[in-house]
Design a protein around this nucleic acid. Structure first.
Lengths: 201, 201
DNA sequence: TCTTCCCCATGACAGATGTCACGGGGAAGT
DNA sequence: ACTTCCCCGTGACATCTGTCATGGGGAAGA
């Protein structure tokens, strides 16, 4: 019996995924959580063999949860299950200890097969996504460039961004300008969107 | 036996929702589609009592599908099932003939209860979402304002937006400026994000 | 010890954005 | 027929954005 922990913030989707997996006689859902920061405490209490983690959740998100879970319960194998095939997400997931990475637009049979494969010691990544990630290269942005781009996503003015991350407006302009140059963007919003699309924020 | 058509673009989520609903002995999944424009043809062939429609799908999306379905198969009751509780979505859904509107962060039991209630002739909307929608008021934006805001979402320059929707740059500025004023936004990106958040695009 | 990079900040300046006035055409409502 | 609103567009101008130069501090690596 393969013990599974399921982390997904949308209750309907989480319940539906649990229902789907319970159809398999050799799978047992031992825990369901809605937040990233609930993953490790719950895993320590329930000892899952496999954790299925969404990425975009409250409480620090799935990538932080994966890193923490891998550090504290290395025997638990981690599969990310997410909406967005962002190469930065894939890279961060791998670096965080995940051995599987599935998109939610895969058919349900792919999820079941992935669980078995990972439980047998294997790894699962969509090959096309892996190729995309490899060609994208590593994240070229510094910590501060990422911070100003993330702050720029809401569309606020330079003054608003500067206030939010406690920097001078000129400093924000400089970071944004460098980031725009690295991403080949025409303005800060294009840059912020590209970085987000790549999973680099 | 209640016949159900399910429209959701993510295969894993669609399969999981179908699995969840098949646990109920009085529900039958008669069709699953991944695109908005497949809803009506499939409904005409399978005669569902209830259609569960996601909103953000390829092929025109769930709101257009709801309008078309209501026009061509008025006996089929429509429940929107979506990630975003945007008041514009709720309003458009109601105007399009939907009698139910659920968010994906509701528990699975809410979905099952909603199906039964709608099948019995009732309506289902999250009360908090209904209140938010009422307080938001109708969409204040003209067609052209919405078009320029939608084009602005990608972060392109005025020239890019103008080229995309075949208008002069000065005209784009004027529409953007008026839209920004209506939405109380400081720049076009704030305006575009607010309109999107409200479901007005 | 020196070099490189990141981060912080200021200042000058060119280009882009946003505001406003103005004017015309068309459609819908009174 | 007149009014109102939407849509289109130009032009002038104030403000904001983005670029670039410059300089200093700190940390890490050679």
């Amino acid at each position: 019996m393969i013990r599974i922990l399921l982390a997904e913030d949308q209750a309907l989707v989480r319940g539906a995924l649990a229902a789907l997996l319970r159809l398999e006689s050799d799978l047992a859902i031992v825990a369901e959580v809605a937040r990233g920061d609930a993953v490790v405490p719950t895993a320590l209490a329930t000892h899952p063999d496999i954790a299925l983690l969404d990425i975009e959740m409250p409480g620090g998100g799935g990538l932080a949860a994966a890193r923490a879970l891998h550090a504290q319960l290395p025997a638990c194998r981690i599969i990310m299950v997410t909406t967005f095939g962002r190469s930065g997400y894939l890279r961060q997931a791998m670096e965080g200890g995940a051995v599987g990475f599935l998109l939610k637009d895969a058919p349900p049979s792919d999820l079941v097969a992935a669980i078995h494969r990972v439980h047998a010691g294997g790894k699962v990544v969509d090959p096309e996504l892996a190729m995309t990630a490899l060609s994208a290269g590593p994240n070229p942005l510094t910590d501060r460039e990422r911070a100003v781009l993330a702050a720029a996503l809401d569309g606020g003015s330079i003054a608003v961004i500067a206030a939010r991350i406690a920097l001078a407006e000129g400093t924000v302009r400089n970071h944004l300008s460098l980031a725009m140059h690295k991403l080949g963007a025409q303005n800060r919003m294009e840059a912020a969107r590209r970085a987000e699309q790549q999973g680099w924020l």
